[in-house]
């Protein structure tokens, strides 16, 4: 099984450890994983700002880089959701469609395609799981509190396989952190207030780490934490799932 690893631009530049963890985790499952060199970005920053018409270049690059794989896996629910909904390129409809169908966010790939039941990871800390909206409501990685429907959670299922990890409850299980792409600067006041409120929920419930399927949310939360000189830390879920006993 040939896997193309899609590492979103800001993870590549600012959080390489999460990308390494995602790669190693997939390799441990015995998969052939490749990182196509010329990949850049899914185009979401432009599209969510109203400039979807400028994303043709990104879409072309994505199709060129990822058409040849059996599956494409990415440690970001938000980028995956954007591509699943908006990856189109005139003259390449079939390729774009094929990519949209074989593209998976990391945790859903582990639970739905690989159907893994155990992990060798250990992470003896109290962890709060932040539900990134695009992964949760967009890709349905876990049940949403608004709906009257049975509960499930793909990320929680995986975290439950990690030795020593204690998942803390939250008062608001799936409220947005306020990142929202360019929203984080165009609506700076609301964005930061939302972030602060999410953090207090995790702190109140005793979290030592906040994890998520999206680093964009975590980058925003980390920005506030560092400004507040808090000891609470952020960590991408791939790093926990790949965390070895010391």
């Amino acid at each position: 099984m040939k896997i193309g690893l899609f590492i979103p631009c800001y993870i590549d530049q600012f959080y390489p450890k999460a990308a390494v963890a995602a790669l190693e985790l997939l390799e441990k499952m015995g998969l052939e994983v490749y990182f196509p060199k010329n990949q850049t970005c899914c185009g979401q920053p432009m599209a969510n700002s109203g400039f979807e018409h400028l994303t043709t270049g990104c879409n072309r690059l994505f199709i060129e880089n990822f058409s040849s794989f059996d599956y494409i896996v990415c440690p970001s629910g938000s980028c995956v959701m954007h591509l699943k909904e908006h990856l189109h390129l005139s003259g390449h409809d079939q390729q774009a469609k094929a990519i949209r169908e074989k593209l998976y966010e990391l945790t859903e790939f582990l639970t739905d395609i690989l159907e893994i039941n155990e992990l060798s990871a250990s992470f003896p800390f109290k962890v709060g799981l932040h539900q990134s909206c695009h992964g949760q409501r967009g890709l349905k990685l876990s049940q949403m509190t608004e709906l009257v429907a049975p509960a499930f959670s793909k990320p929680e299922k995986l975290l439950a396989m990690v030795k020593g990890l204690e998942l803390i409850p939250l008062n608001r299980k799936d409220e947005c952190c306020g990142f929202g792409g360019t929203f984080c600067v165009t609506e700076e006041a609301v964005s930061v207030k939302m972030g602060k409120d999410r953090l207090s929920d995790h702190l109140r419930n005793g979290a030592q780490y906040i994890t998520a399927t999206d680093l964009s949310c975590l980058m925003h939360l980390e920005g506030i934490l560092r400004r507040q000189k808090s000891s609470l830390k952020i960590i991408h879920i791939a790093e926990i799932l790949n965390h070895q006993p010391l």
């Binding site: 590492i7 993870i11 590549d12 530049q13 600012f14 959080y15 390489p16 450890k17 990308a19 390494v20 990182f35 060199k37 984080c184 600067v185 165009t186 700076e188 930061v192 972030g195 980058m219 925003h220 980390e222 920005g223 506030i224 560092r226 400004r227």
Partner: peptide, 17 residues
Amino acid sequence: PWYKQRDMPQAPEESFR
């Protein structure tokens, strides 16, 4: 505006690529 109430991420030594 990012920096008004938030710090920037710490720059790593090298990118993933």
